[in-house]
Design a protein around this nucleic acid. Structure first.
Length: 189
DNA sequence: TATGAGATCAACT
DNA sequence: GTTGATCTCATAC
């Protein structure tokens, strides 16, 4: 099975995003199946890169296949996978995982037992995988990251993005249909 | 079920 | 000084 290489990410975010649903994300051997993510690109007013390069979002302006980690609301960490080509400043925000391996570790880090809440949100999954600002800019095709493509094409649902106020109407949220681990349910069509 | 406050930081006005 | 790609806990209905 071919790994998810930099070439995989060096395409339009809107192509990459749905193909990542169902893929497995491990960080230091802990993680699970990606069930929810959102796409952002530089011409998108909701994207961090919209207003140009800053110290925080510099990684988004680099080559595809790297992790952009930022602090949200002063408390939480969120991970993105940088896509497209260098300078296009596009990325997918990983919003939720279905826990698969290292569940006991994630429970300990999150201090909760409900498996459903372990990784169902961008801030939550970073806490469960122990991803923080020191991991900003790491390559996705080398440890501690380990990405495995999905075995089969799953049923995918799309919807509007969550928790943003600008350009909130774009249906750039992707999810695994019927998953119990989504951060919020997708609106029925 | 639903709203509201608090935590706490970097970018932006 | 305000806002934000958030989460948790508390209080109210």
């Amino acid at each position: 099975m071919c790994p998810l290489t930099r070439a995989f990410f060096a395409r339009s975010v809107h192509d990459v995003a749905p193909e990542l649903i169902g893929a497995t994300l491990l960080f230091n051997g802990v993680g699970g199946e990606i069930v929810e993510l959102e796409a952002y690109h530089h011409a998108d007013p909701a994207a961090h890169s919209y207003r140009g390069r800053t110290e925080r979002n510099a990684v988004m302006f680099g080559p595809a296949g790297y992790a952009y980690v930022y602090r949200s609301y002063g408390i939480h960490w969120c991970v993105n996978f940088v896509c497209e080509q260098e300078g296009s400043a596009s990325a997918v925000l990983i919003r939720a995982l279905a826990p698969r391996t290292g569940i006991a570790t994630m429970r300990r880090r999150r201090r909760i037992t409900d498996e459903r809440l372990l990784c169902s949100g961008p801030g939550r999954l970073c806490q469960a995988l122990k991803i923080n600002g020191s991991h900003n800019g790491l390559a996705l095709d080398a440890p501690p990251f380990e990405l495995t493509p999905r075995a089969a094409v799953p049923a995918i649902v799309t919807g509007v993005r969550i928790g943003i106020t600008k350009a909130a109407e774009h249906p750039w949220r992707y999810g695994l249909a019927g998953s119990r681990f989504l951060s919020k349910p997708f609106k029925p069509e």
